[in-house]
Simulated scan of single mutants.
Amino acid sequence: MASATLTIHPRRPVTDETTVADHALSSLHELAQQDQERARLRETAIQTYMPLASRLARSFHGRGEDLDDLMQVAMLGLIKAVDRFDPERGVAFSKFAVPTILGELKKHFRDSAWSLHVTRRMQELHLQISRAQPTLTQELGRSPSVADIAKHLELSEAEVLAGMECGGAYNTRSLNSPVTVDDGAIELGQLIGAPDDRMESVPDRQALRQHVSELPAREQRILYLRFFEDLTQSQIAKKLGISQMHVSRLLSQSLSALRGRLLAEV
């Protein structure tokens, strides 16, 4: 199969790079995927519109993402725009490419720039609020309140508060990050307390206290003497005037009953 060739209008020389790229784009869809001329025209179009992708990437700089990463995302959007562009629709390439590139950049922020998992709805809500705050600050001459933002975005105040709170998931810090304290630099993780076993056991101890209070008074007394006074079974038997074997039996029955009641709540 003979390869097609690009024909620039013979009566009007083309010198503008953008015009050359537009002519290349108009011919891309007519050429076969394997055609070497198509690959050359595609490369011409991409290189010509790289400044557009770069400009859009820079407009997102300063939001916590590395500029090089944003450039790569914008270039991906540009390549998608070149490959998907259909000149027969009568729309200029730039008008098709800009929303395509912006879509890739916004998708990158939604899916990749959040350190913790946040739903797509909450991510978009946070971005809406972030964009609205500078505008409202300029219009009102002061920092906008939650009510101001809610009215501007036609949202409830609860939705605005939720969107503002989820911003904490956007940037997180590693526990190995250095922080400065009076004694010098240490890691952030060293400032975070370890789990407190006594605090963790509070619910269990509360439940145990309730179940112990439901036992007969003598059984409660035996448990107290054994586990709080640390007396032996013989000492308890002498103190209560009963046999050591009886103390052992009552103690075993009480512990078995408490164990069963606690396990039943799990």
Rank of each mutant, 00 (worst) to 15 (best):
142 R>G: 02
86 D>L: 09
165 E>T: 05
22 D>M: 06
194 A>L: 05
238 K>M: 03
70 L>H: 04
140 L>T: 07
21 A>W: 10
210 Q>S: 06
186 I>C: 12
124 E>R: 12
108 H>I: 08
156 S>P: 04
128 Q>E: 15
223 L>G: 07
30 E>K: 05
77 G>S: 06
48 T>Y: 13
40 R>S: 14
65 E>R: 05
145 S>C: 01
163 G>E: 07
205 R>V: 10
221 R>A: 12
225 L>I: 00
201 S>T: 09
143 S>W: 00
83 D>E: 15
148 D>N: 04
87 P>L: 11
80 K>A: 04
43 E>W: 11
145 S>W: 03
72 Q>A: 14
44 T>N: 08
227 F>V: 03
171 N>K: 08
75 M>C: 09
134 P>Y: 12
49 Y>A: 14
230 D>Y: 13
256 S>H: 07
95 K>N: 04
86 D>Y: 08
253 Q>T: 02
107 K>S: 13
46 I>G: 06
68 D>T: 08
25 L>H: 10
89 R>L: 13
261 R>L: 09
32 A>C: 01
173 R>G: 02
265 E>Y: 01
40 R>M: 14
153 L>D: 11
163 G>M: 07
182 D>G: 08
245 M>N: 10
231 L>N: 13
113 A>F: 08
102 L>A: 08
6 L>H: 05
35 D>G: 02
11 R>C: 12
108 H>P: 02
125 L>V: 01
12 R>E: 12
108 H>K: 07
